[in-house]
Structures are given as structure tokens and as C-alpha cells.
Simulated assay, not measured.
Amino acid sequence: MDAGAITDVAGLEVGHFSDPRRPTGCSVVIAREGAVAGVDVRGAAPGTRETDLLDPTHLVPHVHAIMLAGGSAWGLDAASGAMRWLEEHGIGMDVGAGLVPLVPAAVLFDLHVGDPAVRPDAQAGYAACVAASRQRPAEGNVGAGSGATVGKLFGPELAMKSGIGTASVRLGEVTVGALVACNAVGDVVDPANGQTVAGARTADGRALRHCTAAMLRGEALHPLLAGTNTTIGVVATDAPLTKAEAKRLATTAHDGLARTINPVHTMMDGDTLFALTTGKAARSPGMVVLAVMAAEAVARATLRAARTARGISTSNGLVLPAWDGLDQS
């Protein structure tokens, strides 16, 4: 069954840049005509840019793109490249003296996957914009998902490869789509059956450990630095919304992460979701229905982030299998 994509939402384009030197990159969601936006940060160790302007009480009415990137805080520079591309294409807020493109951003930590000196920069963000289109975006080991991993509670050497995924849900004339780069410290779980899809492996590396069960058995966790994980994403709709409603949509979209990541929103994750609305649909089905659609789209996209990933071996000795490379019992 076609899972759909965030680009099913009218008015949005998506582009990836994947760095050929090591697994890292960035992904951009562009709204050429501007979009009302909100954000909700649930993880305790976020890396973000320009999120304050999304507060419903603040002045700016629209943003022009959202940047998702690897590279930890270094990756926030990718948003500068997106600003340059948008300005060159006549996109931005008119401030009289010129156009100022508004590009909120969030990053995930992938510096342990290969050479940490290689990370997304402004040129990477620019390249992602050049690649942007209305086509269904690639998934798995691309863009912000290039260096994404999951299941690090028992050590990065027992983690697994994840990536970036997309999905959409449609009801009548309204669409809600999501793009999620999953780099969680916990496991990815299929909400349809409760089974772990990807996550921490057993000591021999051959099977899934199942984090919750292992922790409840009292197994010791690996010491981890806060912020060295994080799931980031965008949920978008064409239903007309206010800034306050966009903020609420971002909040309820986190329910989708809670269905598919276990544990989620930890002290070691900086889980952040942006919400966008292009307002292209004639009417909204109401916030309750949109919240259900948003959570479902995010859950499906997160699951696809794990299931479209491919296993890799890195230059610094990590062997990271994907979901289909292990005993799933």
C-alpha cells in the first residue's frame, strides 16, 4: 500500500543533500508561498534555530522552509544555505530593504557515525534546496537520515541503522503529511503489533534486545551524553490554521512518536516536531480530526524511517545493520 508522502500536501517541496564523504546530510521542506508554522520540543536536549518566532504570540506570520540536518549543532548552518537559495529565488519576508527568508531548523546528533569533522554546512543546505521538488522524496539513508541510528541505550556499537521516512493521510479534501528523521536512543516499534522493528541489539549483536524489557530486568545502561540522539521532523497540512492551531498540531503530532519509539522524549533526545500549513484546502475538518491525522502520519513516517534504512559499516569501525538484517524473534 502506498504510504503517501509529505509532498502530497499542496504547496510543499522536499529536497535532500547526502554527503558522499560520510553518512550525514540535511533535508529541507520548502513552502515557496509561505506557511503558517508551529513547533513543539519534547526531548530534553534539542538543537534548534529560529523556533522562538513560531510562538503564537510573536509577530512573524509565515516561514518559508524548515531545515532538518545531521551534524549536531554544526548542522544548524545548513539553514543559512537555504536562506541564500530562497533569497536568490525571490522568496522571503519583505522588510522594505529586501527579502528575509525565514528558515527554522532542528538537528540530530550523528557525529559518531564516521568522521565527525564532516557535517552539513551552508553549502549542504543550499544543495538540498536545489534538489527540492514536488516528487515523493527518497527515504532511508538520505538527507538528515544519512547518519541516523536507533537503539543506543546499551552502547553505540549495539545500535542499528535508521533513516528518514515520509507518509501522509488524506480525509476528503484535506491531507496531512509527515517527514521524520529518526535518530532515537530507544527502539522503533510497530504500533500495529507492538513488535520492535529496530533498536538495541543483544550482546552478540545478532538479535534485538527489546529495550523496555531489558531495562525492567535491570540491565545496566551504557553511559550516554545528553543530546547524542534526537528524532526531528515536520508534519504538514493544507487545512487552514492559525499559528496557535499550528502549535497545537505540532504538540499532538508527538503522539505519533510515542507510538513508535520506546522510550521517547528522554533526557538524551532532543525530539522536535515542526508543523506547517499551506492553507490550500477550503476548510479544516477540525483540530481533533487533524490531531488524529497528524499523529498517524508521524507514526507511519517514523516506522518507514526504520524500515527503509540500509545497514552500513563506518570508517571508525561501527557495524550498523538495518531492520531486515537481524533475527526479529
Results as ranks from 00 to 15, higher is better:
110 D>Q: 11
186 G>I: 03
98 G>M: 10
329 S>D: 12
195 Q>V: 14
326 L>G: 01
126 Y>Q: 02
225 L>V: 14
170 R>H: 06
149 T>C: 09
126 Y>L: 11
208 L>H: 02
119 R>C: 12
85 W>F: 15
216 L>F: 14
96 G>C: 12
141 N>R: 14
110 D>A: 09
253 A>T: 07
57 T>G: 12
5 A>V: 09
225 L>P: 08
208 L>K: 04
236 A>F: 05
254 H>R: 08
99 L>W: 04
327 D>T: 12
52 D>L: 12
21 R>I: 06
155 G>H: 06
243 K>C: 07
176 V>M: 05
185 V>T: 11
52 D>Q: 13
139 E>L: 06
164 I>C: 12
3 A>C: 10
36 V>E: 00
206 R>S: 15
205 G>S: 05
143 G>F: 00
174 V>S: 02
169 V>E: 11
277 T>H: 08
55 D>M: 06
64 H>R: 09
182 C>I: 06
292 V>W: 04
160 M>N: 08
306 A>P: 00
21 R>V: 06
269 D>T: 09
89 H>L: 07
186 G>V: 05
249 L>P: 12
190 D>M: 06
140 G>F: 02
28 V>S: 08
130 V>Q: 13
206 R>W: 12
307 R>M: 14
311 G>Y: 09
104 P>K: 07
50 E>L: 09
102 L>N: 06
42 R>P: 00
290 L>Q: 06
34 G>N: 03
240 P>H: 08
299 A>I: 07
75 G>N: 04
111 L>R: 11
305 A>H: 01
318 L>M: 10
7 T>C: 07
80 S>G: 12
160 M>Q: 12
6 I>E: 00
207 A>S: 15
163 G>Q: 10
210 H>W: 14
196 T>R: 13
226 A>F: 01
256 G>R: 05
232 I>M: 03
57 T>Q: 13
309 A>N: 10
120 P>W: 01
5 A>D: 05
320 L>M: 05
254 H>T: 10
258 A>V: 13
224 L>K: 12
205 G>A: 06
47 G>N: 02
189 V>N: 04
163 G>K: 07
304 R>I: 07
115 D>P: 05
195 Q>N: 12
271 D>N: 09
79 A>Y: 08
50 E>R: 10
87 E>K: 14
133 S>I: 08
92 G>F: 04
221 L>D: 03
228 T>G: 10
54 L>I: 01
183 N>E: 02
273 L>W: 03
174 V>G: 02
3 A>N: 11
41 V>I: 15
123 Q>E: 15
239 A>Q: 11
162 S>T: 03
52 D>E: 14
284 S>V: 08
180 V>C: 06
95 V>H: 09
307 R>W: 00
43 G>W: 06
224 L>H: 06
73 A>C: 10
221 L>E: 13
170 R>K: 13
167 A>C: 08
232 I>T: 00
262 N>S: 15
285 P>V: 07
251 T>H: 15
141 N>T: 01
207 A>R: 10
319 V>L: 11
70 G>C: 11
213 A>R: 15
301 A>Q: 04
96 G>E: 08
219 E>I: 02
